[in-house]
Amino acid sequence: MIQGIFGSKGELFFEIDLITFDGLNLPVDAMLDTGFTGFIAINKQDLNSLDWAYRGDELLRTAQGEIIFDRYLGKILLDGQEYEIPVYAGDEITEVLLGSQWLKILPLVANYQVGILTLG
């Protein structure tokens, strides 16, 4: 189970590690975005240091509607477990986003009143 933090506007943030092709772990704060239906979305520029394999384009539903993303095969470390997952990249993404696919496999507990935010 990983602890998260609430942002100033009610956002949900979790620290995860992006794992480069060479096996280096890069910690980042990722925002949970339930309007994004994939696992992870990232800005295209951030992919340069990761060297993840390109897997084509894919149309996904987001809070802004359906968008075509570049799809990569990436690795992350979340809750002490390594996952190899599709990662979606776009030019307009300003935060690393965790999508709603995680909620199918990991329970989310969010209680603003007592400051509890966990995933896993």
Rank of each mutant, 00 (worst) to 15 (best):
M1R: 13
I2R: 01
I2Q: 06
I2W: 00
I2H: 01
Q3G: 15
Q3M: 15
I5Q: 13
F6H: 02
F6E: 05
G7T: 08
S8Q: 14
K9A: 13
K9D: 15
G10W: 01
F13D: 07
F14T: 02
F14D: 00
E15T: 09
I16A: 00
I16C: 06
L18F: 01
I19L: 01
T20C: 04
D22N: 12
G23E: 05
G23R: 04
G23I: 06
N25W: 08
L26I: 14
P27V: 05
P27C: 03
V28M: 10
V28F: 07
D29K: 15
A30R: 05
M31G: 08
M31H: 05
L32P: 00
T34C: 04
F36S: 10
F36Y: 15
T37Y: 13
G38P: 03
G38M: 04
I40C: 03
A41E: 05
A41R: 04
A41H: 06
A41L: 09
A41T: 08
I42L: 08
I42P: 05
N43T: 09
Q45V: 12
Q45A: 10
Q45S: 14
Q45I: 13
L47T: 06
L47Y: 03
N48L: 15
N48M: 14
N48Y: 11
S49M: 13
L50D: 01
D51W: 03
D51S: 07
W52Q: 04
W52P: 02
Y54W: 11
Y54P: 03
G56Y: 06
D57K: 15
E58M: 14
E58W: 12
L59M: 12
R61Q: 11
T62Q: 04
T62K: 00
A63G: 12
Q64W: 11
Q64E: 15
Q64M: 14
F69R: 03
R71L: 07
R71Q: 09
R71F: 07
L73Q: 10
L73M: 07
G74W: 04
K75F: 06
K75T: 09
K75Q: 11
L77N: 11
L78H: 06
D79F: 09
G80T: 01
G80Y: 08
G80K: 07
G80R: 08
Q81F: 06
I85K: 05
I85W: 00
I85E: 03
I85N: 00
P86W: 05
V87G: 00
V87C: 07
V87N: 02
V87M: 02
V87F: 01
A89Y: 02
G90H: 01
D91E: 15
D91G: 10
D91Q: 14
I93Q: 05
I93R: 01
T94C: 11
E95S: 12
V96C: 05
V96R: 00
V96L: 02
V96I: 10
L98F: 04
L98C: 07
G99N: 00
Q101E: 12
Q101L: 07
W102K: 05
W102E: 01
K104Q: 14
K104I: 10
I105V: 14
I105T: 14
L106Q: 11
L108G: 03
L108R: 02
L108W: 06
V109E: 13
V109N: 10
N111K: 13
Y112M: 13
Y112G: 12
Q113C: 11
V114Q: 12
V114E: 13
V114H: 10
L117K: 02
L117F: 06
L117R: 02
T118A: 09
L119F: 04
L119I: 10
G120S: 11
